[in-house]
């Protein structure tokens, strides 16, 4: 398809190949993601969700297969080069920001994602004024704390900042890796609302891994369920809207163990 933003073609990734612990994390995995798709991804532990995101982000190199972003073959690109196309929010709030650096410095680094960094001054007056405006959207009072180190923020504040950072330089693909799982339920809901409005507003092509089935059904236009490195269920549009947690459990309860069920 021509308007595909992201295409995974027959990607295989095997860990510990040739040993007793051999594991096919991704098994001949294919997925076509259209522009502005917001896909939620569920599956039990070890289904290959994180490996999938790692493969897309270039953190791990697939053993076989092809990865295409916006018509360009990027299969062998290392993670720091993939940053030109992809932005990622991790599960732990501490992973997406540099804790010893200030809020404005973190924003500046994010603004330059995938761009050349030279010996020009980083946080210029212009940038600072703009950051102040942008931070007001979060309504967390961070606009008055630009020079504070990010380590002083709470988990929810830090994750909201990370989300905001991804939109400073709009990525072709946004990867969300259980990014609300480490937050308390109230904060998680707030961060999820923020995510949803940012994705819609910017029409971001998004892949969101989650353990929460309600979340997976509520958000996005498409849902993919993984099992043993393969797509087990792929629904979108009306079909997805009609789907309920009870139905999924009735049909796939056997394969969906552990916390996916617990948090349903």
């Amino acid at each position: 398809m021509a308007d595909n933003m992201l295409t995974l073609k027959k990607i295989t990734k095997i860990f510990n190949q040739g040993t007793q612990d051999e594991k096919r994390a991704l098994d001949n995995f294919s997925l076509e993601v259209a522009k502005s798709d917001f896909i939620t991804i569920i599956g039990s532990n070890g289904a290959g969700k994180t490996t999938l995101l790692n493969a897309i982000a270039g953190t791990i190199a697939p053993d076989e297969g092809q990865l295409i972003v916006h018509g360009q073959d990027v299969t062998r690109w290392p993670d720091f080069k993939m940053a030109r196309h992809i932005s990622r929010v991790f599960q732990s709030p501490t992973m997406g920001t540099a804790g010893e650096m200030t809020i404005e410095e973190n924003l500046c680094m994010a603004e330059l994602r995938g761009k050349k960094r030279g010996l020009k001054w980083g946080v210029t007056g212009n940038r600072r004024t703009r950051y102040k405006e942008i931070l007001k959207v979060l309504d967390l009072g961070l606009e008055d704390r630009l020079k504070q180190s990010v380590g002083m923020l709470s988990g929810g504040q830090r994750q909201s900042l990370t989300l905001l950072m991804t939109t400073l330089a709009l990525p072709r693909v946004l990867l969300l890796d259980e990014h609300t799982a480490a937050l308390d339920p109230r904060t998680a809901a707030k961060v999820m609302d923020l995510t949803d409005s940012m994705v819609r507003e910017n029409k971001l092509t998004t892949l969101m891994v989650t353990h929460n089935m309600n979340q997976a059904l509520k958000y996005g236009n498409r849902m993919v369920m993984l099992h043993q490195g393969k797509v087990q269920l792929d629904i979108q549009g009306e079909e997805k809207k009609k789907m309920t947690v009870a139905e999924i459990i009735a049909e796939f309860g056997q394969t969906l163990k552990d916390e996916t069920l617990l948090s349903a």
């Binding site: 720091f80 540099a98 804790g99 010893e100 650096m101 330059l112 010996l119 020009k120 001054w121």
Partner: peptide, 19 residues
């Protein structure tokens, strides 16, 4: 700009690589 990246390398390497 590059100096910030260098500091982040020591602070949160994974983050600055993903940027």
């Amino acid at each position: 700009e590059y100096g910030l990246a260098l500091r982040a390398t020591g602070d949160n390497e994974q983050m600055i690589r993903s940027l």
